[in-house]
């Protein structure tokens, strides 16, 4: 079909002398990684396991976990999918704070001390760093995270001004990693609380001009276990890997419930 090429194209258009990399040598350093492990099949108790690793300056906590899993102990269990801060699978407690392992560079942590990695708090641990996310997604489903509109479906697109879009822009960024919900002291002690993530996702639709179920969602969140459980500790805003102003969003929902104005 295609015309035959007589001459083969060179593999690379850039000629590099052998042994020459792009940006020079990447510095390496030694770290101690401590992982809080739990395996219900062997013991009811959790324990700390540690490894000494040599890592590169460009490595993240996730790379250290990969190194452990691939080279030292294949039984270490954790979730990760995209590994680039988009899928929200690898939220964990790193040095006592909820972070995404794939967005936390090792060089930004204090490498002179062991780096502590634990599962997120408040959700039942299944194995090592893997927790049961079901209670989290249960709350998420309850706030109806989808567009609800009255009347006939329009034949054209649903128009929205840029101001109207801006109103809920911040809360569209959520990746459902549960870093916020599992950083909330109220959620740790009261698993019935909807939690920041569910409220953020309710906010995303409540303040969307195209949505008609705002009142219904406000009614759901006006519950005893709804927005009024929030004690404004700001742990959620601090933990969010997408920089969502979570406490602000919760405050806006509180205001909307009180004034019934969206």
């Amino acid at each position: 079909m295609s015309t035959e090429t007589t001459e083969k194209e060179p593999a690379s258009k850039v000629e590099l002398a052998p042994g020459v990399g792009g940006g020079g040598e990447i510095p390496t350093f030694d770290i101690t990684l401590k992982v809080r492990r739990y395996n219900p099949e062997s013991s009811d108790d959790a324990y700390w396991d540690e490894w000494k690793l040599t890592m590169y300056g460009t490595d993240r906590v996730l790379d250290a976990l990969h190194k452990v899993k691939w080279e030292h102990d294949g039984s270490v269990s954790f979730r990760r999918s995209c590994a680039h801060g988009v899928c929200g699978s690898d939220a964990m407690r790193i040095n006592g704070r909820n972070r995404l392992a794939c967005k936390t560079l090792l060089k930004d942590l204090d490498t002179s001390k062991p780096i502590l990695v634990e599962p997120i708090k408040g959700l039942p641990v299944e194995k090592d760093l893997i927790v049961d996310m079901e209670p989290f997604f249960q709350s998420y489903r309850e706030i109806m995270p989808f567009l609800v509109s009255k009347g006939h479906e329009p034949t054209k697109e649903r128009l929205q001004s840029s101001e109207e879009r801006e109103r809920y822009d911040d809360t569209t960024k959520c990746i459902l990693c549960a870093a916020c919900t599992s950083s909330c002291p109220v959620f740790w002690t009261d698993g019935q609380y909807f939690g920041p993530a569910a409220i953020v996702n309710a906010h995303r639709f409540i303040f969307d001009s195209r949505d008609d179920a705002g009142d219904m969602r406000l009614e759901i969140l006006n519950d005893k276990e709804g927005v009024w459980r929030c004690r404004t500790t700001f742990n959620c805003s601090e933990a969010c890997p997408r920089g969502i102003q979570v406490t602000k969003a919760i405050s806006e929902v509180k205001q909307a419930i009180l004034t019934r104005k969206i």
Binding site: K34, R36, D45, A46, E50, E118, P185, T233
Partner: peptide, 24 residues
């Protein structure tokens, strides 16, 4: 793999919240 003596200590760390958490 080095097994540290702290293997038997099950205690987790305290959540390192900031001003908001401690004021609460």
């Amino acid at each position: 793999k080095t097994l540290s003596p702290s293997k038997l200590i099950p205690a987790g760390t305290l959540y390192r919240g900031r001003e908001g958490q401690w004021s609460w």
